[in-house]
Write a protein that binds this DNA or RNA. Sequence first.
DNA 1: TTGATTTTGTGATAAAAGTCACATCAGGAA
DNA 2: TTCCTGATGTGACTTTTATCACAAAATCAA
Lengths: 189, 189
Amino acid sequence: MSHLLKEHIGAISPLSDEEFDYILSHFVFKKLKKHAFLVQEGNSVKYEYFVLKGCLKAYMTDSNTGKEFIYQFGVEDWWITDREAFFKQSTATINIDCLEDSEVLGITLENREKLVTEMRKYEHFVAVKANLGYISLQKRLQLMIMGSVKERYENFIQQYPHLINRIPKSLIASYLGVSRETLSRLYRS
Amino acid sequence: MSHLLKEHIGAISPLSDEEFDYILSHFVFKKLKKHAFLVQEGNSVKYEYFVLKGCLKAYMTDSNTGKEFIYQFGVEDWWITDREAFFKQSTATINIDCLEDSEVLGITLENREKLVTEMRKYEHFVAVKANLGYISLQKRLQLMIMGSVKERYENFIQQYPHLINRIPKSLIASYLGVSRETLSRLYRS
DNA sequence: TTGATTTTGTGATAAAAGTCACATCAGGAA
DNA sequence: TTCCTGATGTGACTTTTATCACAAAATCAA
């Protein structure tokens, strides 16, 4: 049996079909139309989501200027949620909505903890993920502080070549912390 | 018995004296002079460190410009290491050195995994820490992208009031991703 | 298809921050 | 104390990026 989530977890903690079926039974499936919200500011955040299909953006809005900063995109094989609200069981400070029709698998904090407690393999998977996530965030911060706009964009192209023509440049600019005009002017020979 | 590390872990997972003694036996104590390196680029990173006393900086040097970016300070009650090198057991890409005479407790990856496996409480502590660390890094990134230099500095003052007069402004500027001159000019009435 | 909306590019100008240079100030070591 | 080093403040100028404005191109929905 092949399943995107099975491959995903299995890359860190190899799973038997039975183990994976058990894990999968703790998730709920959701199908969303373009522009639909998965997480909305002020609401509670019941799930952490694994993206099966489509594309989403997680962003926060500056209360003064009204401008938005995209802190993460979510496409196939990625996890997305308002991490702080999910783990602290508080209300969302960010929004997540769909750039395309999307399909996700959601797991509640309760089920997540249940799996972590019951299955050493899932606990290991989750711990490794947390570390890798932290490390990649640290690299992004470093690039943001030390790198020029050009370096940031080139790094993005290299890391996410499949997103360049899938996501509007204005959103990529927001992710890179630069105005869309400046990004657009980068490659004038 | 009172111990900084016991209070630190206990705030997340309360510990008996026996449990803490057992945990502590997995750490090694190190005492360092000002300017000494705890982690040096190119070397292996055997330990993750908890700071008992003193002040350290973790930074990376841009290979082109030679300028350094401080990604973390470490003072009492903080953890510090080259996370990526430590977990992947590769060589350091960053340097950590002492701004003051310092004392730290180090734990190897092996001992860390041993404790995580043996003690549910330590595992919980470590998981919670990873989450909190990720969340605070995310906030720092957000502030870096959306906030003005002034907002970033004010946030720093609010978060770390005790560091303002302990660490040179030029290093704080590096942490905030701004030149020391610009930081110095912030508060001309 | 067609009209509307979104996306993208680009000029002109303003604002923010960096860089270089130098002066002053504070603290540590002999 | 006295010298030396590192820390800090600030002027002058340059570079980078944001902002505003508008037009062309692409995409989407009825």
